[in-house]
Amino acid sequence: MCGIAGILYKQPGNHEIGNTLISMLDGCQHRGPDSTGFALYGDKNEQLQLRFIVPTDEAGKSTAINSIANLLEKHNAKIAAEESVGCSYKIGVDFGGDLLAFTKEMEEQAKLVSVGYSLDIIKDDGTAREVDERYDVGSFTGTHAIGHVRLATESAVRPEAAHPFWATGFEDIAIVHNGQITNYWKMRRRLERRDYAFHTDNDSELVAVYLADKLAQGEKLDDALKTAIDDLDGTFSFLVSTPTEIGYAKDHLAAKPMVLLENDEMIAVASEEVSLNRLFPGQAINSTEPAPGTYKTWSL
């Protein structure tokens, strides 16, 4: 239920992806004023970066942080850096063990929303501008990013229900999704039987886990998107990002909008042209609408 946007610069470097994505999401905020989220890719860190959503009251927050610390100790992960802003608690850890087992246990105890060496997922209630004020998203530089504005309809407005979703168990993969997956329970049970855990009832989380599972089996992102179009039933336009790629997939009925702009420097994709316009104020742009049932990926 929402708006999505993504940007990828073809040349490596420290592009202003934070500010760019903020203005793209601001453009389509009317599609979802309740919460906003960003998945940003910057320089690769030495430590594994984990971001959690924690209670905002002091007592709740310290309880949550303590239980995170205990688990880290259990898995021999050492905190190298930490920061706490708003509803979010971010740490960098030295970790060399089994990521799947580690994050699975971690997710049972705490609301883990981002895991990766170059990925940072920032999401919270409020508009793109409001989230930026809290987390200084604008200062983030890097190569590519995807983002989402959410209209909370059936469920409450909660930061953890916001997008992007990270692919449980697999670092540095994020998705944003606009639409509804109608065979959600069937696909979720299939993945649960393969030992994947789900932490929300949000159908978009399914997309993330589905793709992660395919990538874990050694499939290329391209191929995973191709099978997603047939395996996932419903209406969707979604974006996925890895440390080196972004991609999209669109359902067979083209029920959810998406427009695309590619030039020598960048790929920009969004639910509506107004987001692309923000990149080129006052200029006519040559956008295209991807055909129904198609997918594509772009690499750095």
Binding site: M1, C2, H30, R31, G32, L151, Q180, A255, K256
Partner: peptide
């Protein structure tokens, strides 16, 4: 109107 987000825009 293929979802709640489309309906918001239709209402407008």
């Amino acid at each position: 109107v293929l979802g709640a987000d489309d309906l918001v825009i239709k209402v407008d």
